[in-house]
Every structure is written in structure tokens, then in C-alpha cells.
Design a binder for these strands. Sequence first.
DNA 1: CATGAATGAGGGTTCATTCAT
DNA 2: CATGAATGAACCCTCATTCAT
Lengths: 241, 241, 241, 241
Amino acid sequence: MTSLAKNLTMPAVNDHRPRVAAERRERMRRRLLESAMIVFADKGVGASVIPEVVAAAEVSQGSFYNYFRTNEELLAAVGDELSGEMVALIEAAVGDIEDPALRVATGMRCYLHLARSNRLLARFLAGAGLHLLDQQNAAFRYLPADLAEGQNRGDFADVPLEIILDIVAGSGLVVIDRIARGRTPKDYPDKVVAALLRTLGMKVADAERLTSQALPKLKPTADSLLARAQARATVQSSADT
Amino acid sequence: MTSLAKNLTMPAVNDHRPRVAAERRERMRRRLLESAMIVFADKGVGASVIPEVVAAAEVSQGSFYNYFRTNEELLAAVGDELSGEMVALIEAAVGDIEDPALRVATGMRCYLHLARSNRLLARFLAGAGLHLLDQQNAAFRYLPADLAEGQNRGDFADVPLEIILDIVAGSGLVVIDRIARGRTPKDYPDKVVAALLRTLGMKVADAERLTSQALPKLKPTADSLLARAQARATVQSSADT
Amino acid sequence: MTSLAKNLTMPAVNDHRPRVAAERRERMRRRLLESAMIVFADKGVGASVIPEVVAAAEVSQGSFYNYFRTNEELLAAVGDELSGEMVALIEAAVGDIEDPALRVATGMRCYLHLARSNRLLARFLAGAGLHLLDQQNAAFRYLPADLAEGQNRGDFADVPLEIILDIVAGSGLVVIDRIARGRTPKDYPDKVVAALLRTLGMKVADAERLTSQALPKLKPTADSLLARAQARATVQSSADT
Amino acid sequence: MTSLAKNLTMPAVNDHRPRVAAERRERMRRRLLESAMIVFADKGVGASVIPEVVAAAEVSQGSFYNYFRTNEELLAAVGDELSGEMVALIEAAVGDIEDPALRVATGMRCYLHLARSNRLLARFLAGAGLHLLDQQNAAFRYLPADLAEGQNRGDFADVPLEIILDIVAGSGLVVIDRIARGRTPKDYPDKVVAALLRTLGMKVADAERLTSQALPKLKPTADSLLARAQARATVQSSADT
DNA sequence: CATGAATGAGGGTTCATTCAT
DNA sequence: CATGAATGAACCCTCATTCAT
């Protein structure tokens, strides 16, 4: 690229500084989000993370307040970012599935498998408990419509869907807590989802069939919060030992 | 030794002193537990209740430490007491039921209805989140055996019970959170339990049938923590308005 | 003893109760002093002994205040009692010695050997530091006169005695601290006293001679604070291991 | 890189910001050390100085913990600083003296005279009691070697030096306590040192001769902790009257 | 915008002391 | 007198937040 081309595509030479500044700002924000996710996963969302976050991010106390004003704002930011990344991953995996029952089943399996392959995520979500149920739980952006569609097609029985949603949310929480704590078998998520399909009125065998197909790989991109925080957390905890 | 001699050597058999002291101590402990339950219900289980508990109980800070040494000890005491009271109430209601499926269904309905009729309890349990799942959740003392029995008799399908337990726990949590938050229809608990019976592999109609029978009244005694704390909390919140 | 004889020697039957009471009171006081000596030896005289003292003495908090009103009063009582016992023991051992220089030397050796054979005493005195220098330091009731007498007879050089007293006091303190801390050779006290005789202007050889004679045994009676507290402390610390 | 280029790429070389910050931090630290020395001198080393130090330094409680984390750390810092200043002063005064006996004698005299001319120092050291004997007591960095040298040259008798060190330490403590408490004659330190030389086996006359020479002035610099704390303490105690 | 010191509020805990029984 | 619960003052410490540089 010649310097002429450069001048054509980029506004002006004195726009250089602001852009660099914006990039630096963005890098900083991401460092903070990574650290925050790790610390929230460690200590839960209830309490006093700022000191540890700034320490982990190697940032001054004062700087923190240039990015987030309260604990809650920080938590919300982490929750939003994670929610977005999870939805994107799962959407990519299930968007093409026509059958609503299979789409629901596969989506839920993806969600749980994702947590199972990213322990930091599981610990964060478990630590968040009921705090993030509405915003973050990817489920609730798509699930209602899919369930209704499945019900219309007769795949699910005629049961009240709001109650299904509550049960799905609660199951997700406890199941992810179990995943966060320790060793769960590889097919644990699948069995949970099969059970939830039964809750929807499916027969045992049908539920089993819908949850035993191979799943697509869910791979967060290298610059995602999911990937970066997981990497850092892994490094740290091995360093601890 | 004649009773005359006894009167000469022992100063009037005033063994009522220890007894009255023990009673006072017990009353104080109960005052603290009531206040603690109320405060936990307000602020959640995670953090810093002692100052508020002390204020609510109108007791000095120092006194608190004559009874409980940490936040956790206090929480455990409240949890134990509530757990005991709930188990006693529910046991009384379902102990005589022979059919395991009906017993499970009725027990769960009692649990949720109890929370629905005692908002303070619901708020406490919701605030406790995952913290008390093992100890307090009355469910897990009886549920496993009842489920196994039901499965043996063929009332439930042949599904993995550990997963059922996770789903029951999670559902309980979120459902109670919803109850704690606001207006839920009178039959909300029953519908939830019907859904959980489906999770166990029951047919829709059977599940419905098992959850539509009249329930026995669950009435905590007047000196129970459930009743006393609820009474105090109601008084306070009306006073607040 | 017949009951007649009893009536003759003892004031009257209704004096019986007060005497018993006084004895109980005295026993209690001694229990407290023992415990206090042990606790002071453990934690030093500076701080917060009352809770541990009442625990060690197995007495209620309230009772304590029937005997001592403050920390200092308690410390003073222990100091007085120990001081008295030590003076009595040492006086018994050196009272008959005519030669003032030998009397001084032997007295000081007794003092240090006593501390060396009663580690609890050493730890108490070391912990007391400068707090008890005037009252407790047995030395200062007799030393001035003995020193003056020795100086008059020409055994000691013509040196200012107040300064000698300061040095003796200070040496005593640090030496006892060393004894309290750990292993000191058996003749450590003797060498210290020899050094102090040199401070008084004696020749090296003379000092050595005066401090190498056999010492009388110093044996606290079984009901002395020295003996009882030492016994209890030994029991406790072996129980700890 | 020319200095022109430098000016373009680096924002005005404002590396004075860190420097001025470090200076402010250092001033604060010194304020705290001054106050701490004064408070330790008042209440002794054992206990609970932080609130008073904070008050004396007119600093918030929170600030204190930006500098020292515990009572002990604070004490150690004061002790280290004082130790360093005292050693420097005395070293300057005696470093050139060839004769070991004279060096020892002069060093000890300096130490005591310094305490006598700085009552705050005397009170601090007396309050420290046995706590700082090893670290702070300037003596013990140089004394052993000097004593050994003197012994080799035949200036001191052949006596066990460890015992001498104990006696010197103890004497120092009690003597400084006396100085701290009240009026001592101007030559009190000299007489003490003469006595200690006798302890080393010197003749009365020799000891006297070595301790009667004029001493160099020991003048702490105006920005030393010794000088500044003394100044502040004097101001305060006159203000109290 | 980054920095990091200063702040003050708040929480946790211990202890000497009092007092009803 | 013995008891032990109740008290409140005092201490230790952490943290969110602000602000000068």
C-alpha cells in the first residue's frame, strides 16, 4: 500500500492519534473484562472484585473507573460479552436446522457442552447464579419461539411453556454448577437435555434419539473473551501449582 | 438423706436458675435467627449481614458473637432450623401416602406451596441460591429413595435418577425465585410438579392427575421460625410503607 | 477428737460456715493466681489476659471481678506472691552467711538458678520486663545494704553503688530472658554472677572463687504458687503435644 | 536519535511526575514514622498504636495501611530507621579510634549520651524493652569483634564474652529506662560504662581513665527521624502543659 | 487518559466490665 | 458469692471512590 493509497482510505494524518488511542482503549477494556471474568469465576459475583481485577489486569485503580463505574456495570459487561459470544457460536451451529425439536435439543446441548469444555465459563455462570438469568441465558432469546413452533407441529405435548422455561433455566443453572465443580461424564449434557425433552412431553425413546447425534465443534475465535480468559486462567492456575 | 436434711444443706433447691437462664438464652437465639432470616431474605446469602441482623434484633454487636461466630455459622443455623421445620411439616403431610409417585408429587407440591404461602421463606431460599442446595433442600433426604421405589414399580420410566435430582433442584431454585419475586398463579406449583413428573417419564395425563388432588393444610406452629419471622417481616414491611 | 474437744478448740458451731467460705475463697484466689501466672508467662504482661485466665481457672467471667478488678491488680498480686516466695527461699539459703560478698554472690546465684529450674518463673519474669523491676526483684530489698557492707570491708572497690544496682537489675532481666528462651548451660548463672562481682571491682580470680561453691537446694513447698503453677503448666504443655 | 526526534516522540519528557510522587510518598512515610516513634515511646511497644499514630499524623486510617500492614511492621520500620541513624552517628564518632578498648568505651558512651540528649529516643528504647534487642541495639553489630580484639591485646581479662554481651544488653536497657524516666546526672552514662569495663576485667582506674575523655558531639541531621520526631514531641508536650 | 496515593465508611472481632438471677 | 449473658467501646482491616499530578 503506497502512502497515497493510505491517504485515500484513511481520513487524514492527524486522525492517526485518535485511532491509536481508541485501539489502546479497547485493548485495555478487554484486559479488564478478561480479568473480571476470571475473578468473578473465582469469588462469585457477590463481592469485592475490583482490587483483584485491577491487580490481575495490571492496571491502576484509578484507570478502572475510566471504564466501569460499579461492580454491577462490570458484571453486566462481562455477561453481555459472553452472552453475545455464546449466542453467536450456538446460532452458527443450529441456525440451519429445520426441525424445531432438533434445533432446541441441539442448542441446549451446545450450551452445556460449551460450558463443559470451558471450565472458566462454567464457573463464571455458576457463580453468577440467578443474577444473570434473564440477560445472559442465551436460551431465552430463541427458545420461546422454537418451543412454540415445536408444539404447533405436535413434536411437544400441549404443556404450558412458561413453566418449561423456568425448568430449563433452573436446570441449566444447577447443571452448570455441577460441571463447574468437577468431573462430569462426557454425555452428562446430553442426558440432561433428553430429560428436558421429556419434560416437554416427548417419549423417552424420541428424546434419546434427538440427543444422540454428533454435535458440530464449537470453537470460540482466538480473540474472543471466552478463549482469551480461558487461556489466561489456565496459565495462572498451572502457575499456582 | 431426708428432705429436711436436704433443705438444710442445699440452699432451697433453686435449680430453676439454670433453667430460666437457658430459656433466656434460647429466646435470644431465636430473636437472632428471626432477624437473620429476614436480613438474608433481603440481602441474599452472600454478604455482610451481621450489622443488620444486630440492628434488627435490637441487640449489641458484642452479643451476637455470644451466639454465632461467623456469617456462615449463622446461615447454617437458619438453614438447619428452616430445613427441620419444613421437613417436619411435609413429612406430616405425605408420610402416610403409600403410592411413591403420589408421595413424590405431593411432597414437591407441599414444598412449593409452602414457599408460596410464606414469601419470606421464598425470598430466603431464592437468596440462598446454590449455597444451601445440599443441606436444606428438604427434597434430598427422601427423594432418592422415593424415586427409586417409583421406578421399580414402573410408575416412572427407566431414566437416570441423578439427572432428575439435578433438574428438580434447579427447577426448585428458579421456581422459588419466581415465587419470591412476584405474583404467581395459585396452581403454578402444581404445574411445575406435573412437568417434573413428565421429566420422570410419566404421561401428560397421569402427571396432571397426580398433581390435581387437594393438598392438606401446612400450618407452621406459632412458635416456629417460619411463623415468627414471617410475622415480624410482615409487620416491618407494612411499617415501611 | 471428740465432739467435746472440737467445741473447745473451735469458736462455735456457727462459725463453721464463714470459715468454710473463707477457705473456698482462698482456694479460688489461688486458682486464679496460678492461671494468671501461666497466662502472663505465655502472652506477656501487656495484654488481654482475663479471658484466658478465667478459662484456665475454669471460673466464670463475673467471678473474676470478685477477686481482682484490673489486669494490673492481677499482675501485682502474682508479682507480690512470687516475690515473697522467692525472697523466703533465698533468705533461707543465704541468711546465715556472714561474709557479705559471699552472701551477695550466693543470693544472686540462687535467684538465677531458681529461674533456671522453674522455666515458668523465668518466662513470667522475662515477660514482665521492666514492669516489675522495683517490687518483685527480690534483690533490691537486701542488696543495697549487703553491697555497702561489702564495700566497707574492702571486698568491693569504691564504686558508685546505684550504678551497680542498675546493672544488676538489667543483667538479671536479660539473663532470665535467655534462660526463659532456651538451653543455657548449667553454670551460666554462676558465670553471670562472677561477671557482676567484677563489676563491683573484684579480681577475676576472687569472683570465680566466690561463685563456684556448692549451692543449697532451693525447694518451693508443694503449696506455693511457684510449685503449683509450674506443675499445672507442665501438665498442660505435655498435653498439648 | 536526536534530541529533536526525542521531543517529537515522547510527550515532553515529564518524568518529573513519578519523582514528585515518590517524594510525596516518602514524606508521608516519614510523617508516619515520626508519629509512630512518639506513640511507641508513650505507650510502649506491645500494643495498639495504629489509631493513635493515625491521629498524630493527621492521616486517615485507610492511608496507614498503604504504608504498613501491621503493628510489627511499623515497629520494625521505626527500629530499623533509628538503628541506622544511631549506628551512623556513632560510627562517625568512633570509627577512627584505633585502640579497641577505647573504641568500645567511647561507642557505649556515645550510645547512652545520645539517649540522654534525646529523651524521646530513650523512652522509645525503654518501651521497646526486650523486643528490639537483637536488631536495633547498635551495639551488637560491632561489639563482639571489638571485645575480642581487646581481649587479644590483653586490655580485657580472659572472661566469657557471651556473658558480657548479655550484661551489656541488660544494662543498656535498664539504664536507658532510667534515663527515660527522669533526671540523671550528666556523667551517669560514663559511670555505667566504667562499670562495664570493670565487668570486662579492667582495673578501676583504667576504666575510669577510658571513660573520662571528652566526647565528640553527636548531632543528628535536621531531616533525621531522631531530630524530627524529637522536635515534634517537644512541641506537643509543651502544648499539653 | 493513566497513575496511585488519600480517604472514609463499613464490616468483623475481641475484650473489660456490669448486672440480673 | 458464682454465674454467664449483655453491653459498648475499641481495634483491625478492606474497599469503593476521588483527585492531584
